[in-house]
Design a protein around this nucleic acid. Structure first.
Lengths: 229, 229
DNA sequence: CAGTGGTCTAGACCACCGG
DNA sequence: CGGTGGTCTAGACCACTGT
């Protein structure tokens, strides 16, 4: 008989989208709503908290709850491991380590990673295949200051991404996505014409404010990422 | 004295990242945890629910709570209106309507939008400027089945995006992002060389399962989107 | 200062699902 | 079937913030 917080949330969404509570409207307070719905205050509170997370309403102490003038558009995107991404598409996954050394990164990279002058890092280049066709090129720097274990790690069998996820899980991440023209090296490794428009991402991950790794991922021609929200 | 659910959540994170509860570990039940932390069961429940949302742990009835083997990588991205995006960068925003008509979309578009055969749609092409330099080209179809008001709307002053947000707020959205080579038209409107790698997005929005609009956004050369999580 | 949301409690019942 | 998380309650106090 009594409503659940989900039903209340749905009902509120109906009232918002249906025009009862148009954008900008001030909603009744929690006590009034709980009386109206015949539930405890905590229950309408739960529904309202969900609507805040969905970007539908805004709440402030004292001034109350109102429907956002422009609903906050945001999306959530899953970030799969390359291997899972490929295997999920039904293709077989292969991995190849192209380059691997330990060196001082060029100045721009070192600056971005916040490395001390002359600090060493592990540099890796890997290629991920879907059904023997190149799928993604991975160019990575791993800070040996933050992850000294990376100095001796062997990346011939396991990719650095999966290795890092096990070594240093739970990091802060900053991602940028962009379009890149294929240079000579990209064109060769990804088997496309030079100049081809490729989708790329740069990901920098942190642990306690310190950069762990900086990676550039470039996908083969035509790749798109999709999400629904 | 007694801990808040945030402090409990943070403490749990420490235990997880610190190795007390490594990936795969089965956590104590809520009753046990509430005893350990000296709080009510609802409070640890709140902390645990937050960790589920963050993709750190998994919970199932009867079998209990465990730390995810691989933390679920996901990100949240804000999707600003172009105008806000440009104005936030400190540039002046200008808008120009390039093309506008009402017609039957080509078959692939109609199919993707789920339109009946011969159904009409409003077609628009708009250019968004930052400081008088082309910033983003917007190619859009609006279903007149879903939004009949779009037939007579005037898009010379207000962009279709902002118009739609006011007319049809609160929609479901599907987004794809990709890299595109500039064709002749793109090169001209965005003032770049043909073949230039451009960042693009396709966004399809739905209301109650029905497609409202399908839009392709192409940004000027060098654009990147960024997010931190 | 006063009103609103934010959080906590102690207890209860329910829904799911693994053994 | 029984144990776990999921939800709800009625009440209380606190924290922020507009006036």
């Amino acid at each position: 008989m009594t409503m659940t917080y989900r039903e209340i949330k749905d009902d509120m969404m109906r009232r918002i989208t249906g025009g009862d509570w148009p954008p900008g409207t001030q909603l009744p307070g929690e006590i009034e709503l709980s009386a109206e719905y015949g539930v405890a205050r905590a229950t309408v509170g739960r529904a309202l908290r969900d609507l805040v997370e969905d970007g539908i309403i805004e709440r402030r102490r004292k001034s109350g709850t109102r429907v956002r003038a422009h609903p906050l558009r945001q999306m959530r995107m899953a970030i799969p491991l390359v291997r899972e991404e490929i295997e999920a598409s039904g293709a077989a996954y292969f991995y190849k380590l192209l380059e691997s050394d330990i060196s001082v990164p060029p100045a721009p990279v070192a600056a971005r990673m916040g490395l001390a002058e002359g600090a060493l890092a592990r540099r890796l280049a890997c290629l991920h295949y879907a059904d023997l066709k190149p799928y993604q090129l991975e160019d990575r720097w791993i800070s040996l200051t933050a992850v000294p274990e990376a100095e001796g790690a062997d990346f011939h069998e396991i990719g650095p991404n999966e290795w890092l996820v096990r070594q240093v899980p739970f990091t802060e991440v900053e991602v940028a996505m962009m379009a890149l023209p294929a240079d000579q090296r990209l064109a060769q490794t990804l088997e496309c014409a030079p100049g081809t428009a490729l989708f790329a991402a740069e990901r920098q991950t942190f642990r306690e404010g310190q950069t762990v790794t900086l990676v550039r991922l470039v996908w083969r021609e035509g790749h798109r990422i999709m999400t629904r929200y």
